[in-house]
Design a protein around this nucleic acid. Structure first.
Lengths: 149, 149
DNA sequence: TGGAACTGGTTACAATTGAAACTACCGAGG
DNA sequence: CCTCGGTAGTTTCAATTGTAACCAGTTCCA
């Protein structure tokens, strides 16, 4: 007869994942907020725009897995602080490009080391090998969720 | 000269962790909500109370890592549906015990297999060994965050 | 024993977030 | 062309969440 697997919340992987992730997010969000006045969503757009020259909001959403409302709001906040600029989209009048301003680039250059330092503090206990493994596992989990929905 | 580590959001572990965790949480939360009308916080209290006979709200908070307001609200919802009952606390008049009612137990018995099935669907691709490794890594991350704050 | 400081839990209000409707625009088919 | 279905992004309104104040009740110590 099959063993009936018993549920224990403490050993329930979705729970463990959530607790660990929230702990990390809270900690890092606090850094962004206190030191730079940015929310996580805003920081993500900044980071992606730093890697991409210019993008339309939909592309930002696809890359960061944020829904379009969140992108819209985060972008509005960044534009309000003149960290990001809007540019006309030549091909499609409904959309527009977003790109870092000089100030946005400067802020990013300041945050990036802080972000890497925070990561190092939290994940420094892991070997490079372990980090790679964790990265791979997290991507596999993501794939499992998004595959069939 | 040292290599200057460059930040790429896609490879940034806190980001990967957050994306994976949110994907899993969203998926599972949807199950609880649609099928049982429970929010994640309520489900957590239910699960812990199923393992513990009776607990005071503060203990529930400590175990589930929820703050006392969330515990209070989730408990109120469960009591409203008569899934959980309040019992007097003999020693301290400010507090009280919470315990599953018969209905709460019955609902839990129904949800537990669904939760395990959801876990199996998302993490079934991992070997037992890998799951143990993931669990350990997540606990190490948690410890790193909570150690020095 | 009688405050003063503290703790557990709840409540009230503000800020954040999410869902649905809306506006402006595009693009295909008649 | 010109309408109709669809898409990009924004706005509005409601629900959720977080923060701060609050009310017992308890503890400590004069």
């Amino acid at each position: 007869m099959a063993v009936k697997p018993k549920l224990r919340l403490d050993a329930f992987l979705p729970y463990r994942l959530s607790v660990a992730s929230n702990a990390v997010s809270d900690r890092i969000a606090e850094t962004y907020r206190r030191r730079f006045g940015l929310k996580v969503a805003e920081w993500r757009l900044l980071a992606i725009l730093a890697e991409h020259e210019r993008l339309i909001p939909a592309a930002l959403g696809a890359i960061t897995r944020m829904d379009k409302i969140s992108v819209s709001r985060a972008a509005a906040a960044l534009i309000g602080r003149e960290l990001v600029a809007r540019e006309q989209h030549p091909g499609d009048g409904r959309s527009h490009y977003l790109a870092l301003s000089a100030g946005g680039r400067a802020l990013y250059d300041e945050i990036a080391p802080a972000a890497l330092a925070a990561e190092a503090e939290l994940f420094g206990q892991f070997t490079l090998e372990e980090r790679r493994l964790l990265d791979t596992m997290l991507r596999r989990i993501e794939a499992a969720v998004t595959s069939d929905d």
